[in-house]
Design a protein around this nucleic acid. Structure first.
Length: 266
DNA sequence: ATGACAGCGTGCCGCTGA
């Protein structure tokens, strides 16, 4: 079974490209992030036409997560237990954002995750990011405590570069989000909860990235960041026989600024 | 060739992204 994650940066702007890649890459399950639309606006038809069922969680033009599968989608969960809430302004009541969607596909529990960006160090959004990661860690730890043999995949855009090798220049990110010690500690806490990065062993660095800014020729110069990850529970991790970052999909006009990340399970 | 931001709506600027 082939499972992938991709921050698509608007599904409406890229649905043909995504559906085309699903078929070409022989993907069974794709978790998407940053669909940037409501459930009503989500383009379901191209997925159905390609042979995939799809579930989506989106409230407005921000965030948005989805899972497409051609091997079944069961027990869909919108958000996770104790997922922190966010309010965009003082007159708007805080609510859970469209950043987490879970579904079981052919025995694998997949969570499509879009971790908050953090904006700038010390901002309310940065505190929210750290809270969000801590809550995810606690809940994900419970999932494994309840069933140590569970096949769990926590996949998506983590908005963290866990090591200095995961950015094209650590100097360029000095003082920025994504590389700070608290963010890295929060990410490592999930690894400590027995989830492992199942892609890195197949795609060692340095200079191996999943995201490249649209500006300043960052992609052709390979000045990117590794921030999209597939973290697997022990039972899932031991099934991984291949993994890759599909740089080809970052090329050309109309590409997302992220590349898909793909694993193959025995 | 991989090539000098992109997508969205309260829309033609401002916000978000990282």
């Amino acid at each position: 079974m082939r499972v992938a994650t991709w921050n698509v940066n608007s599904i409406r702007a890229r649905v043909d490209r995504v559906a085309d890649w699903l078929e070409r890459a022989d993907v069974d399950v794709l978790a998407m992030q940053e669909t940037k639309c409501s459930d009503e606006q989500f383009p379901t038809m191209p997925f159905l036409a390609a042979g995939y069922d799809v579930v989506h969680c989106g409230f407005n033009q921000w965030n948005g997560v989805a899972i497409a599968s051609r091997v079944g989608i069961e027990d869909v969960a919108v958000g996770f237990e104790n997922q922190p809430t966010w309010s965009s302004s003082p007159d708007v009541e805080a609510a859970a954002e469209a950043r987490a969607l879970g579904a079981t596909c052919n025995g694998v529990r997949v969570w499509s995750l879009y971790i908050p960006n953090g904006r700038f160090v010390g901002s309310p959004h940065y505190a929210y990011k750290l809270e969000w990661l801590a809550a995810l860690r606690d809940t994900a730890q419970k999932w494994l405590a309840d069933d140590p043999a569970a096949q769990l995949a926590l996949v998506g855009d983590w908005n963290i570069a866990p090591t200095d090798e995961d950015v094209w220049s650590i100097e360029a990110y000095e003082g920025s989000t994504h590389v700070t010690e608290p963010e890295r500690t929060a990410f490592n806490a999930i690894l400590d909860a027995q989830y492992s990065d199942v892609v890195r062993p197949f795609t060692p660095g340095p200079a191996v990235f999943t995201y490249w800014d649209y500006t300043q020729l960052r992609f052709p110069k390979n000045r990117g960041m590794r921030i999209d990850f597939i973290l697997g529970s022990p039972a899932l991790a031991q099934r991984v026989i291949h993994a890759e970052i599909v740089r080809e999909e970052r090329k050309g006009k109309g590409a997302s600024d992220h590349a898909p990340v793909l694993i193959e399970l025995a």
